[in-house]
């Protein structure tokens, strides 16, 4: 997925003006990043209403916290961090934190795979329309441990480097590599019917 890049100096100017209370400048930042933040929240939560709510909360929190942003890191990694933390808080509030002590090597048993996999969507050899493809991918990602979801979205969908993911989630680079490896293994297993040596079955 290609991202439209805005020169850093222009973005820094938007950030600087936003910090002084310029709503128009902040609106430019929202416009640029709303889809990317939604990708992360949707990938972590798996349903559009919660993802939209968390995206909104993340931007409002970012606006309130702009005075604390000193520009030491990139604005978007700082923003991702806020959104990520909002979703983690949401997990806690909703009591959805299933894997309290995250085990990066976690791979569900066959029985658990059957229970958590959206098996009804997995029909080998069948081509998917776009809506169904979206649903299949979402269900596959939701079968991952929560912290692996953020890593896979930021790498595979958002195209962040390991260092950027590390900064966005506040985890070590080695942890990024490890979570990514296990998430890929798991997704390959679940999405096997749609992955045929590099070819994608898509309608």
């Amino acid at each position: 997925m290609k991202r439209k890049r805005v020169p850093v100096s222009e973005e820094q100017e938007w950030v600087r003006r936003s910090r002084k209370g310029d709503k128009e400048a902040f609106s430019r930042l929202v416009e640029k990043y709303r889809k990317r933040i939604y990708n992360l929240t949707y990938g972590m939560l798996g349903n559009r209403e919660d993802a939209l709510d968390m995206t909104q909360e993340a931007f409002l929190k970012a606006y309130r916290s702009l005075q604390g942003f000193r520009g030491g890191s990139d604005f978007y990694t700082w923003l991702y961090r806020i959104a990520y933390n909002r979703v983690i808080d949401h997990y806690r509030k909703e009591g959805r934190k299933r894997h309290v002590e995250y085990d990066d090597t976690y791979v569900p048993s066959d029985e658990e795979s059957i229970r958590t996999s959206p098996s009804s969507y997995f029909q080998p050899g069948r081509e998917l329309d776009r809506k169904e493809l979206g649903r299949v991918i979402n269900n596959a990602i939701q079968s991952l441990p929560e912290q692996q979801r953020a890593v896979i979205v930021l790498r595979e969908v958002e195209g962040l480097s390991y260092d950027e993911i590390s900064a966005s989630l506040g985890i070590r680079r080695g942890t990024v590599m490890s979570r990514l490896h296990y998430a890929r293994q798991r997704l390959q297993e679940i999405l096997k019917p749609y992955l045929k040596e590099g070819e994608i079955h898509e309608g």
Binding site: M1, K35, Y38, N39, Y42, G43, R48, L52, R130, K131, L133, G134, R135, V136, I137, N138, I141, I152, V153, E156, V157, R184, L187, Q188, L191, Y194, L195, K196, E197, G198, E199, I200, E202
Partner: peptide, 22 residues
């Protein structure tokens, strides 16, 4: 490596499909 590459394409297409609708 081919599987990793294919997975990436599939995830990007799946997200593009889900998010474009939004």
């Amino acid at each position: 490596v081919d599987r990793i590459k294919a997975l990436r394409s599939l995830l990007q297409d799946g997200f593009a499909a889900a998010v474009t609708a939004e």
